[in-house]
Amino acid sequence: MVTKKMTINIPTGLEARPVAILVQVASQYDSSIYIECEEKKVNAKSIMGMMSLGLPAGEEIIVSANGKDEEAAIQNIEKYLSSESQQ
């Protein structure tokens, strides 16, 4: 299992469109991927779960991945969250 603290640098935070893209990124991997913020922990592959977090820009989160491609999953999620322009 890999766990990493990350900061959301997407200017709009994780609202509808960025959440949908993040779920697509996470869904490319076989690993289980979870995002934690404060007391909440949600599956990064669940669009409804991710929307329930309502994460603003600048928020610190903890991303954990567990599985055969966990390293690649963490790297690509961090790459997406640190991008200052949306893909």
Rank of each mutant, 00 (worst) to 15 (best):
Q86T: 09
V42A: 06
E84F: 07
Q24N: 12
L14H: 05
A73P: 05
R17Y: 13
I74K: 02
E60T: 13
D69P: 11
N66Y: 05
L22I: 08
G49V: 11
A26K: 00
T7L: 05
G67P: 06
N43K: 07
V19P: 01
S32P: 03
I8Q: 00
K79N: 14
V63E: 02
R17M: 13
V25R: 03
P56V: 12
A44P: 05
G49M: 10
Y80H: 05
S83T: 06
S83Q: 08
S31A: 13
N9M: 09
S64I: 05
E59Q: 13
I8E: 00
I10Q: 04
N76Q: 12
G58I: 10
S52L: 14
T3L: 08
V23H: 03
T3P: 02
I8N: 00
A26E: 00
I33C: 04
A26Q: 00
K45I: 07
N9L: 10
A72M: 08
K41A: 07
K45F: 04
D69A: 08
E70K: 08
S82E: 14
I61K: 02
T7Y: 05
E36S: 14
G13V: 08
I8C: 01
I74W: 02
A44D: 04
L81G: 03
G13W: 01
S31V: 01
A20I: 08
S52M: 15
S64R: 09
K5P: 02
G49A: 13
I74R: 02
V63H: 02
V2D: 03
N66C: 08
S31P: 06
N76W: 01
T3S: 14
Q86I: 15
I35V: 14
A65P: 08
C37L: 04
I61Y: 01
E84M: 11
D30T: 11
M6W: 00
I10N: 02
K4S: 11
E38A: 15
P11N: 09
A65R: 03
L81N: 02
A44T: 05
I47S: 07
Y34I: 03
V23A: 05
Q87E: 15
S83P: 01
K4W: 04
Y34H: 10
L22C: 06
N66L: 05
P18I: 09
G58Y: 06
A72L: 09
S32A: 13
R17S: 10
A16S: 15
A72V: 07
G54C: 15
E36P: 01
A44G: 08
E78H: 00
A72T: 08
M1W: 10
K68F: 09
L22Q: 02
S52A: 14
N43Y: 04
S82Y: 13
V23W: 03
S52Y: 08
P11Y: 06
K5S: 10
A65H: 06
L53W: 06
M1K: 14
E71H: 14
N43S: 11
